[in-house]
Amino acid sequence: MTASKKPLIEMKNIEKHFGSVIALAGVSVDVYPGECHCLLGDNGAGKSTFIKTMSGVHKPTKGEIFFEGKPLNFERPRDAIRAGIATVYQDLAMIPLMSVSRNFFMGNEPERKVGPFSFFDHEKANEVTMSEMKKMGINLRGPDQAVGTLSGGERQTVAIARAVHFGAKVLILDEPTSALGVRQTSNVLATVDKVRKQGIAVVFITHNVRHAMAVGDTFTVLNRGKTLGTAKRGEITPEELQELMAGGQELATLEGSLGGTV
């Protein structure tokens, strides 16, 4: 664990208002390299708004963002990507009709110069794609295999591998496991673990406590636009997390009748 290092990203008292709606009312989170920071919260808690602020989609109404100690002001998502903050969205990671290698290099195409013209270097793209996929444990039929033929978990893995390959220092995963089956989920969680061990900071958004406990080093619970607290692994039990997420209401009684399986 490298948690003793300085934080890679410090988000201080972030507020975001949409008109009269206060989506975030002062959220502070520090993310450290090599650490998986789980962001938990029920629907409407402000998780999505918060990560969109981190990835440059939204500008915070108030509050400061420090990246590697320097204050940051993202105008566009592109700025965040350039700074090394990559976001993998649940449904929008890949384009199914395009091949894996075309998807992998989408927006970052390798080029080969022939005279005054630059061409897409397919050979290099295919080679890199195959080796990166092998590292992540996905065996492709070929680099020209369409992404549409991959499973949901594999698509997430390709998107994560892509972000890592292009030098992400912070990887934001927006509910990567919520639409996946058991086996695919464990594949994605294993990928997260691999990425973390490479010293990359992972921000993992989920509303599933089990998935969070499986890979998380730090847990922050959001509720109604506020931080309910940040805890380190071992300082908190799944039950406590669950209760925080639900705001402690009613779930206790529900959980009783469901036998603690929520």
Binding site: P77, Y89, M94, I95, M98, F105, M106, E109
Partner: peptide, 25 residues
């Protein structure tokens, strides 16, 4: 279309404009 970076962007824009935007196309 098939041999340039721009060609990849054409495919990406038509395949899923939002996904393409997220990676900077």
């Amino acid at each position: 279309l098939t041999r340039t970076k721009f060609g990849n962007w054409i495919f990406a824009s038509g395949g899923d404009a939002q996904a393409a935007r997220y990676v900077g196309v």
